[in-house]
Amino acid sequence: MTRPTLPPPVLPWAGPPATRPAGDRADAPVPATLRAVREEVARVLGQPSQELTPELRLEDDLDVDSVMLIEMKCCLEHRYPELAEVSLADVFLGCGTLGDLADRLTELVGLPVG
């Protein structure tokens, strides 16, 4: 008896797992926010931003710790000052990958899709 396969599992990280089943995502990341995420994360990690693709997981692929998250938030605040009103958890909770983070940013700063 075959069982329906579940979507590929993702791991929790200081919060519930993030990546939703394919096809159930919100609109694809706006290029502007994804670019911002890649550049600021690159700055914090000291890596070239070209290496930071959207499917990379913050914990298991990039080994980001909580101090780095704070640094990332500070960097993103320089780009999007409205993030100063948003808590750390509201930015990162449930974001497993860089793509998730870009999605979240899009929601939080209310940029138009396109």
Partner: peptide
């Protein structure tokens, strides 16, 4: 001595 001051960390923390 992990650097936290001057990065805006204290405001978040």
């Amino acid at each position: 001595d992990r650097r936290m001051l001057g990065l805006g960390t204290e405001r978040q923390v």
